[in-house]
């Protein structure tokens, strides 16, 4: 084997990993904000993304809606789904054991997967949109991946500004620190939870916009992206968005380089094994503090 540092394929892989990391970072954002604020893990998060992908696909392919509009609709649909998920399913059991909230969304996972199978069949569908690749030296970087990466970064910065600058964003951060005092500020916690759920859903919808450009859509696609997204969030420290951001890139490089040296499954195996080991070294997440 060539010395990797002089091998253009190696660098291409590293860059692919970096770009994939951007997508993972975006996927982890919504889950993290939900967990950080409401203290619930949506096991069905990736299934919401799947429904967003289907929405975009059908609007674009079957109804001829321009892609940007279809994507906007996809984001809105998933945001509404997120709000509905919270209102009808999480809210009634918000005061029971936390693990029930995790499990109930697992039920939703099966429901949505079954629904997609029933409604859209197990057929693999592809949007068939390609923007070609960019050539840099000996490397080829697919434009869609670069675009996905840039959108992810913009979304991360946008979310950060929203949480930091706006009243609503500040309230979202505040409620995760002290829920019970919120009514005294004139804030209804129930409404903030609903808004946060819609926001988390909207971020899942944004994830769908990127994934729909990169991958085939099928009812089980959630099982591919779900676990990795949870791992990214946990390794970054559940609810810690910056930690999740860093973890996303670590994971993505593991997967990309694993795929470079062996098969892609090995990348995942190593990434997950690394995750388990990390949990024992830093159970509070890579950036978490002990308290």
């Amino acid at each position: 084997m060539d010395f990797p540092l002089t091998d253009p394929f190696f660098w291409e892989t590293v860059i692919q990993g970096l770009l994939f990391g951007g997508v993972l970072a975006l996927l982890s954002l919504g889950l993290n904000i939900i967990f950080g604020v409401i203290d619930v893990v949506w096991i069905c998060y990736a299934e919401l993304i799947m429904l967003g992908m289907y929405t975009i696909y059908f609007l674009y392919s079957d109804y001829g809606v321009p892609l940007p509009l279809a994507m906007l609709a996809g984001i809105l649909v998933v945001a509404l789904l997120g709000a509905a998920l919270h209102y009808f399913i999480i809210r009634p059991i918000l005061h029971t054991e936390p693990i029930n909230q995790l499990l109930v969304t697992g039920g939703v996972l099966f429901f949505l997967q079954g629904f997609a199978t029933l409604a859209f069949s197990v057929e693999f569908r592809n949007l068939g949109v390609s923007f070609g690749s960019i050539e840099a030296g000996d490397m080829y970087i697919p434009t869609t991946r670069l675009l996905a990466f840039i959108v992810s970064l913009v979304a991360v910065v946008g979310l950060w500004l929203f949480l930091k600058r706006t009243y609503l964003g500040t309230a979202i951060r505040a409620i995760s620190q002290d829920r019970d005092v919120m009514p005294l500020m004139g804030v209804s916690p129930g409404k903030i939870y609903l808004v946060t759920s819609a926001l988390g859903g909207g971020l899942a919808g944004l994830g769908a916009c990127l994934l729909v450009l990169l991958y085939d859509i099928h009812p089980a696609i959630g099982l591919t992206f779900g676990p990795i997204t949870f791992m990214v969030c946990v390794m970054g420290g559940l609810g810690n968005m910056i930690g999740g951001f860093i973890a996303a890139f670590i994971f993505a490089e593991f997967i990309a380089l694993g795929g470079f040296y062996a098969e892609i499954e090995w990348g995942y195996v190593i990434a997950f094994a690394f995750f388990i080991v990390m949990m024992f070294i830093r159970p509070q997440g890579i950036l978490g503090s002990k308290s």
Partner: peptide, 19 residues
């Protein structure tokens, strides 16, 4: 013929069970 309906009902029942 109706793939998925069983999984869907199964999921819905789980949700109801846990609630």
């Amino acid at each position: 013929d109706v793939h998925g309906l069983d999984v869907m009902i199964y999921g819905a029942m789980l949700v109801l069970f846990i609630i």
